[in-house]
Simulated assay, not measured.
Amino acid sequence: MARSIDIMKDRQEAIEAGCDVLGQGFPIAIPTETVYGLAADATNPAAIAHIYETKGRPRFNPLICHMADLAMAEDHAEFDPVSRALAEAFWPGPLTIVVPLKPQSTIHSLATAGLDTVGIRVPVGFAGELIHAFGRPLAAPSANTSGKISATSAEHVEADLGDKIRLILDAGASAVGVESTIVKIENGRVRLLRPGGLPASEIEHVAKQKLLRSRRASAAIEAPGMLASHYAPGAAVRLDATRVEENEALVAFGSAAITGAANARIVLNLSRSGDLAEAAANLFDYMKKADATGAATIAFTTIPDDGLGEAINDRLRRAAAPRE
């Protein structure tokens, strides 16, 4: 099983142990403000291959590369004026920007799925410190089996990948709880590739423009989290539920009464007060708890599509999509 280090008890030990395993070319689980990441040296093809093998991830699905700061990011990618403005406004934070790779970048093509662009993020807190100490960017998708529910705690990682990795760095529950928002600038326009932990309205305020949105059915895989079926529990997922059917778990939002709730395998509420930030932070943990009941279906009540609700509903639609 994986060794686990509580970074709150010994931050330096965590950094030293993390750099040691990363330097050997193996992935580790790291905490970020969004979700836990499965991180490996983005310049080492063998290390990146271990990420794909550990997750069972399709290799046409690119990986986000995490940087210590904007200066490190500029060593690897070209930033147009809009991309730079967004980076300066929101990094470190839950925003990934897809930008062109520089010819001299040492990021391996296995991390970018052969694309000439790369998704870059600067995470908040410990992860940024670890990258700075390691001295190279880290490719870091979410620390879970591909297509399944993302991990928002060290316990989630241990339950899913604990027998496949060497080290888990534990910082408690993720504060944001959903993956980063991903954008790409094309001819000066900002296109939303994946809604996430930074609301679109905040990006629009800085960019001084409305975001373009990809049509899900036709969008090419340009960034992580764009597969139609993703973030899925073992149970089926039913959305916009107004009543609970036989052998269902219920995940509600807000204070409205739901018919048949007393017969649910379990009743969980993402936020009784209707707080979308609280709902986002609870989403994956509650999905895992509902799935653990053995219910055939998890029923989710309607969640508003504004603010962080856009990211929550994106994850739920993908969890509910037909599976291959």
Score class of each variant (00 low, 15 high):
Ser105Met: 02
Tyr52Gly: 01
Val237Ala: 09
Ile7Leu: 14
Asp314Val: 09
Glu204Leu: 03
Gly25Ile: 03
Ala279Met: 09
Ala39Gly: 02
Ala299Phe: 04
Asp285Leu: 04
Gly260Gln: 04
Asn247Val: 05
Val267Arg: 14
Ala40Tyr: 01
Thr145Leu: 06
Ala200Asp: 10
Arg57Met: 08
Arg84Tyr: 11
Val178Leu: 05
Val118Arg: 00
Ala140Cys: 03
Ile221Asp: 07
Ser229Thr: 08
Arg11Phe: 06
Arg59Thr: 15
Ala320Pro: 11
Val35Phe: 08
Thr54Arg: 11
Phe284Trp: 04
Ala29Arg: 00
Thr34Pro: 10
Gly177Asp: 05
Pro304Ser: 05
Thr106Ser: 13
Gly125Glu: 13
Pro199Thr: 12
Val21Arg: 06
Ala159Ile: 03
Ile51Arg: 01
Pro27Ile: 11
Leu227Thr: 13
Phe253Val: 04
Ile64Gln: 05
Leu86Glu: 10
Asn247His: 07
Leu22Val: 12
Lys184Asn: 09
Ala241Arg: 00
Arg315Thr: 03
Gly25His: 04
Lys184Gln: 15
Gly309Ile: 07
Leu308Tyr: 11
Phe284Gly: 07
Asp75Asn: 15
Leu308Asp: 13
Tyr52Trp: 01
Asp170Trp: 06
Gln12Ile: 10
Glu129Lys: 11
Gly56Leu: 06
Val206Pro: 01
Ala232His: 08
Ser174Ala: 15
Gly254Cys: 02
Ala296Thr: 14
Ala85Tyr: 01
Gly23Asn: 08
Ile165Asp: 00
His230Lys: 10
Val124Ile: 15
Arg238Leu: 07
Pro123Glu: 04
Ala49Met: 06
Val267Thr: 12
Ile51Ser: 03
Ser109Ile: 06
Gly274Phe: 08
Val183Asp: 09
His132Ala: 11
Gly234Ile: 04
Ile64Pro: 03
Pro94Gln: 09
Lys102Tyr: 05
His205Lys: 14
Ala264Ile: 03
Pro304Phe: 07
Arg194Trp: 04
Leu138Arg: 10
Val183His: 07
Ile107Glu: 03
Leu95Arg: 09
Lys210Val: 12
Leu63Gly: 05
Ala77His: 02
Ser201Glu: 15
Ala17Phe: 12
Ala280Gly: 14
Asp275Met: 01
Ser255Thr: 08
Asp170Phe: 07
Ala295Met: 09
Glu179Val: 13
Ala281Met: 04
Gly260Tyr: 13
Val244Phe: 10
Arg84His: 07
Met72His: 03
Ala151Lys: 04
Asp160Glu: 14
Val176Glu: 14
Ala200Val: 15
Glu204Ala: 10
Ala217Ile: 14
Ile258Ala: 00
Asp314His: 08
Glu33Leu: 08
Asn44His: 02
Ala321Phe: 11
Ala2Lys: 08
Thr112Tyr: 05
Gly307Lys: 09
Leu239Phe: 00
Lys102Cys: 13
Leu138Thr: 01
Arg213Tyr: 02
Ala279Thr: 05
Phe90Asn: 05
Ser174His: 03
Ala139Asn: 02
Gly37Phe: 13
Gly93Ser: 13
Leu95Glu: 11
Ala235Tyr: 11
Pro141Ala: 06
Thr34Trp: 09
Asp275Ala: 14
Ala320Leu: 01
Ile28Asp: 08
Val118Glu: 10
Ala175Leu: 15
Ala143Leu: 06
Met67Asn: 05
Met287Leu: 11
Thr242Pro: 01
